[in-house]
Design a binder for these strands. Structure first.
Lengths: 94, 94
DNA sequence: TCTGCTTATTATAATATTATAATATTATGA
DNA sequence: TCATAATATTATAATATTATAATAAGCAGA
């Protein structure tokens, strides 16, 4: 009953289902940002943000580009904002 | 930064992010079903299905209706199938 | 190469989630 | 009330996730 695709979708959803990671994704909807900027926006520690970004990268939800000492992250698929909008509609009623 | 609505959306997403629970939701897209039918469709034990249904009920993702000895479950919001479709598009590529 | 800045990794203790087994509840018919 | 079928709850051991602290690694300018 439980196949590979279902497992993968679950793992991706689970990676989305974390407050800090949702904030990171929210921050990236307006465009790519360096880790430092993300840290400030979401208000989490360097290590924490880096680890969350690793999880998001592993699931190919975000991708990274190095520019000198900085690493810029961006969303892989703009459909992600649709997913977040739907989640808001469904789960943030009134 | 992290507010109540965000927390709630996270908790709901986390409840979605489980293989058995996704199968349950999938099974309910075609209409309401008794627990027994759900058990058969998803291939999980009585206790397991019941516990998963409790989590889904707690988050108001499904609702229950008792009819004699049976309890029928259904999806609260048809938008859920849109969410699943989007998740499939995003996370079940090729 | 040394220094400073940015980001990543590792280790770990605390907490949360899960599956299973056992038991309890609820409803119905004999 | 008793027996049975359907569902729910509880307890618990195994596993997974998380935040924090410490350390490492990558890059650029002096």
């Amino acid at each position: 009953m439980i196949n590979k695709k279902l497992e993968m979708a679950c793992r991706c959803l689970r990676v989305l289902a974390h407050p800090t990671r949702l904030l990171i994704i929210q921050a990236l909807i307006s465009g790519e940002k360096a880790v430092q900027e993300i840290e400030k926006e979401v208000g989490a520690s360097q290590s924490s943000v880096s680890q969350h970004l690793t999880l998001l990268r592993d699931k190919e939800i975000v991708s990274a580009r190095r520019a000198g000492p900085q690493v810029f992250y961006r969303l892989q698929d703009p459909k992600l904002s649709q997913l977040l909008a739907l989640a808001r509609e469904l789960f943030c009623k009134e």
